[in-house]
Design a protein around this nucleic acid. Structure first.
Lengths: 340, 340
DNA sequence: TACTTGTATGATAACGCTAACATATCTGAG
DNA sequence: CTCAGATATGTTAGCGTTATCATACAAGTA
């Protein structure tokens, strides 16, 4: 009827009627029923977001920035938090049942994945099939392969690691250590690769005893790994490039425990730009990943897909950002010198 | 038709037909259209969650735990992140339009609130009216008054502050300082009140020069406030009870800068159990609020309302939890002694 | 036999909206 | 005067479900 025309600003309506309708709507606290509208329009103005631990601040930032973008385009987000592969799949089914217009798949950290990698591959296949069968566009944030056709938005960890090393070198460091994650898969491998590439490019040999590992993504473990390193090596590096901020915080604690000052005695640089980088004194110098940018980009790409605009099919890489802190000291070249 | 009966396990269906239907459904990757179902059933199995900064880990934890509870009851969450009062209201309208079955209103931190408190009150009134007009049940998490009828789930900050003081006293401290927030409204006032109450109950006088303030909820500012305090007072307290973890981290940095060790020279206790409490070495001893519990409780209360089960109308208080760290030292009574 | 009860399935309407078409009035051009 | 086009409004059908009622047959009971 005419009411629909008024509320949608569509077609011809006389000013008189329009005014009347709007007045009535206000008086009755009328709120159009989007469910009914969705049924006939065959779109819900709702996107599904699939994730695991929203407690993880990085994921929360993805959600925050996506929410912002989608809202400005009149879309809302249905959240589906999975804690198991089974949950994850049923989450997709539920979202499809609720007729979301599209999906964003955030990184999934499930306990059962590492134990059963084939279960994950199988889940990806099933989800891919479901999404394809329902012809729902989707974007993957992070490094998971959901299907060959996934458009992924990823952080450029390798560039980040290179950026860290380049900065240390620019600040005069030549003897550079690296605290890495023991099980160097995925993003960790990228960080290690970035480190090695930047060192190589600068013509610096990586001394083996300065590359040491931490078994867990944990401050405490990083501290102990660093203590062990400090007690083991014959000569100390002038700077340690840490695979993430937690490691850097742990390293800093270890150094302090041995009576060494950061950055006077040794420099530290982290990677992530997480809250941890703001807990130390001085603040940690680190390479900050840009979760807000990633979330925004992911939302934008999905909107492009939804509006059937042309979209670049390759991975989207989000560059990191240098975050100045106080844990890297400028040293003169004679302090550094050759090594290895 | 019969299909509906099969999928809903309702009414009489022969085993033969049932099998046939399920087979077809699987073959066609059939997913029932919840939108159509919602239209006729007049419920969506969806709840709206209203919040501001989901980047805030505490809010993210609310969402995480609520998501868990709702999911186990077959409900999903539509997120509405507001960044202004206007956004917030339009968020409610959108959610109502999408016919959510109920709402959870998380704490709203909007820039324009502090400047225009009456705008906030007005917004609350409007939202209350909307929710009432649409007869949607809702639960408020935190201390905001949305309406007189709001059921609120709150952290017992006062009990937390008392717990902190009681612990310090149990550990032999008598000379206790307090780093508080300058603008002592709301939750901050509760914390201060808890502190004072516990001190009074223990018969300890609160020495005025040991109560000092920080103007911003910020590590750096807390550090400077503490430095100023350290340089000002004639005698130091043996312990400082901090209004939150950030303050404690700042205080710790200040003490370290003055060459004092925590807890050897002075003890510290925080409040919140935030990430900050895990960034220090040793870990901060703190009173941890329980956002996961709060989120769970809020979801449970909303489910009760949705199922029209009897619900206690008063505020629900979530008790805090003592989180052991290494920043409080046990001292003998002769070290403490009378004060003031 | 006739009536009840349990089982199984189909037909119809309705949920609140919008697309598509039909109708009606008005304006100005030829 | 007539017709085209713009303006304004109403009518109808349909989106994919489920509630309700109607129908049908079987088995058991009086």
């Amino acid at each position: 009827m005419t009411v629909s025309r008024v509320l949608n600003n569509k077609g011809y309506v006389s000013d008189e009627k329009r005014k009347k309708v709007l007045e009535c709507a206000k008086r009755l606290n009328y709120q159009p029923n989007m469910i009914a509208r969705s049924l006939v329009l065959n779109r819900t103005s709702t996107v599904g977001v699939l994730l695991s631990h929203i407690e993880n601040p990085v994921y929360a930032q993805y959600v925050a920035s996506m929410s912002r973008v989608f809202r400005t385009h009149g879309m809302d987000i249905i959240l589906s938090c999975a804690s198991s592969v089974e949950d994850w799949i049923s989450g997709v089914k539920t979202l499809l049942g609720k007729q979301v217009d599209g999906l964003v798949i955030l990184p999934v950290e499930l306990d059962d994945i590492s134990d059963h990698p084939q279960a994950w591959a199988q889940a990806c296949e099933e989800v891919g099939k479901l999404l394809c069968a329902n012809a729902k566009p989707y974007v993957v944030v992070g490094d998971s392969y959901v299907s060959d056709k996934s458009i992924r938005v990823r952080h450029d960890y390798q560039a980040g690691a290179e950026m860290a090393v380049d900065y240390l070198i620019k600040m005069g460091h030549r003897k550079i250590g690296h605290l890495r994650f023991e099980n160097g898969d995925g993003v960790w491998a990228e960080r290690l690769e970035g480190f090695e590439r930047a060192m190589k490019r600068a013509g610096l040999h990586v001394r083996a005893e300065w590359i040491y590992s931490c078994g867990d993504d944990d401050v405490y473990r990083a501290m102990h790994a660093t203590l062990e390193m400090l007690d083991r090596v014959s000569e100390l590096p002038t700077a340690i490039c840490c695979a993430n901020d937690k490691f850097a915080v742990g390293a800093m604690q270890a150094l302090n425990m041995r009576g060494m000052r950061v950055p006077e005695d040794i420099s530290l640089i982290g990677h992530d730009g997480s809250l941890y980088s703001r807990c130390t004194s001085p603040f940690l110098t680190t390479i900050s990943i840009q979760p807000l940018t990633a979330g925004t980009r992911a939302a934008e790409v999905l909107l492009d897909l939804l509006h059937e605009r042309p979209v670049d099919r390759g991975d989207v890489f989000v560059p990191p950002n240098f975050q100045e802190g106080g844990t890297v000291r400028r040293i003169h070249t004679e302090d550094g010198g050759a090594n290895g």
